[in-house]
Simulated scan of single mutants.
Amino acid sequence: MTDLTTTPRHTTPRRTTPAAAPEVREPAHVPLAHVVRGGVIEGVHHGSVVVLAADGGVEFLAGDIEAAFYPRSALKPLQAVGLLRAGLPPLDDEALALTAASHSGEERHLTTARRILDAAGLSEDDLRNVPDLPYGAERREEWLRLGHGRTRLAQNCSGKHAAMVLTAQARGWPLENYADAGHPLQRALAETVEDLTGQRIARVTVDGCGAPLYSVSLHGLTRAIARLATAAPGTDEGRVAHAMRAYPEMVSGTGRDVARLMRAVPGLLAKDGFEGVQVAALPDGRAVGVKIADGADRARMPVTAAALARAGVDPGILAGFARTPVIGGGAEVGSLRAAGALAPRAPEEPAP
């Protein structure tokens, strides 16, 4: 296991000249998923999706992939790259994966976050994320049964925040305000987001955890995840991608759909975000980006599976992700599945 207290290693990242920021407007989303119960469409989820070819060209799109939006936690892999560029002391792969995680609050997640902090004599009191209960439902119930309350370590972004405060300490920057948008650390992360997405940030706000959140386009975010997925080993992008692939359950949690998807599709790099966001990329650069307009998480994975099939992933591998059962009286009476421009209508499905 790598010594977490090793002197920071700086690399010379590949830089791009960012294009103009995406336009802040109401996105022109389109229908992407149908909720079908008993042969009748009872719900429609709108959104936008993009599929990139290995050369970076747009292979398929539906909706509005150029409008500004907030990627939420789907930004974390980019921020992890930014932390390495800013001087994050070297971490082993398990800890680096947690840096890019929206974890479930399992014991291994909390232990690893503590390990990141302990390496430099820091503690949970140095974190500035909001206290919360574990994200995973089973873990949350267990946590409450044990009499625990909301803590900063249990909050799903604690790995990112632990790495942020560790980087700030390594660089000699103030610790108490490391999460402020004007802090040198956050300015460095914003620069990395612009470099990887290839566009200026449209707006900056505060994410649920308390860290800055940057608005880019779905197209730009998908380009960025493709850059990580295709990066050479040993580069900052390549190190983050390798760690996430090696430890999918550290990036999310046991049984979570993102971890299962990364396990199912060889070489896939994937990250989800609140409000119906998902990005995923293959080692050859093919990539998909999904935004569900109403933020419904239930539509995220079926639409992602359909997009990956468009990118050339074997539909058989994706079958377990392509539909969500609709239950009535304890039995399956329908399903939620991709529709509209993304997937042809099944023969038995009625017209909208």
Rank of each mutant, 00 (worst) to 15 (best):
F60L: 15
R223W: 00
T222H: 02
H161K: 01
L175I: 04
R245C: 03
R337Y: 05
T222I: 08
R25D: 05
L96H: 08
E194H: 14
A19Q: 14
G273A: 08
A306I: 05
E138N: 13
R150K: 11
D257E: 07
L221S: 08
D236H: 11
T254F: 09
R239E: 15
R298V: 02
D314H: 09
A181N: 06
G210S: 03
G267E: 02
L282I: 06
P266I: 06
Q79L: 10
H46N: 15
G56N: 12
V130Y: 07
T99G: 09
R114Q: 15
S252M: 03
I292T: 09
R239V: 09
H242M: 10
R152V: 10
L269N: 13
A243C: 14
H10R: 11
V290T: 07
R286I: 00
V206G: 01
E107Q: 14
A190D: 06
L127Y: 03
V35D: 14
A53Y: 01
P89S: 04
L175Q: 02
A226D: 06
R223F: 00
E348D: 15
G208A: 04
V326H: 04
A67F: 04
T205G: 12
A95D: 03
R239K: 13
A264Y: 04
L61E: 15
G210I: 03
R260H: 05
L268N: 02
G320P: 07
K291E: 08
A232S: 04
P347W: 08
D132T: 06
R171A: 02
F69T: 08
S48H: 15
A343M: 11
M164Y: 07
F274Q: 00
V333E: 14
R300L: 13
P134V: 00
H45A: 02
V30H: 06
V130Q: 12
E141H: 12
L91F: 12
E26K: 14
A120Q: 13
P174M: 08
M1F: 08
A246L: 14
Q186T: 01
A188Y: 05
L4W: 12
D92V: 02
R286N: 05
M244P: 02
P248H: 03
S48M: 15
A343D: 03
H45T: 01
L91Q: 07
A309M: 01
I317Y: 01
L61T: 15
A170M: 01
P233D: 15
A211H: 00
A281M: 14
L98V: 08
D207Q: 06
T16M: 10
G87K: 02
G329I: 13
E94Y: 04
R345Q: 13
G57Y: 05
L146W: 00
Q79N: 07
L78A: 11
W143I: 10
T192I: 03
